[in-house]
Simulated scan of single mutants.
Amino acid sequence: MKRFGIDINWQVIFCLLLSLAIVTGCTVQAAGPGTQERKDATVNFELLKAPYPAFVDDVAKSMKQKGGSKVIHKNGHTYVVIALGQRPSAGYSVIIDNVQHSDGKLVITYEEKKPQGMAASVITYPVTVVKMTKTDLPVKVKSKK
Rank of each mutant, 00 (worst) to 15 (best):
I72M: 07
I72K: 08
H73S: 13
K74I: 05
N75S: 14
N75Q: 13
N75C: 00
G76F: 02
G76H: 05
G76V: 01
G76N: 03
H77N: 10
H77C: 06
H77I: 00
T78L: 03
V80S: 04
V80W: 00
V80D: 03
V80Y: 02
V81Y: 01
I82P: 11
A83M: 10
A83E: 06
A83G: 10
G85N: 07
Q86P: 00
R87M: 09
R87S: 04
P88I: 12
P88Y: 13
S89E: 05
A90M: 07
A90P: 00
Y92K: 07
Y92F: 15
I95L: 14
I95R: 15
I96H: 07
I96V: 15
D97A: 12
D97S: 11
N98D: 14
N98C: 03
V99P: 09
Q100C: 09
Q100M: 13
H101V: 06
H101Y: 13
H101Q: 14
S102Q: 15
S102K: 15
S102T: 10
S102P: 00
S102A: 15
D103G: 11
G104C: 09
K105H: 14
K105C: 12
L106F: 03
V107D: 05
I108S: 06
I108D: 06
T109G: 02
Y110N: 09
Y110T: 10
Y110L: 11
E111Q: 15
E111V: 12
E112M: 10
E112L: 08
E112Q: 09
K113V: 04
K113R: 15
K113L: 10
K113S: 12
K114V: 09
K114I: 03
K114F: 05
K114W: 03
P115D: 10
P115G: 11
Q116T: 11
Q116F: 12
G117H: 02
M118S: 02
M118P: 00
M118L: 11
M118Y: 09
A119Y: 02
A120T: 13
A120N: 04
S121K: 14
V122N: 04
V122S: 03
I123P: 00
T124F: 08
T124E: 05
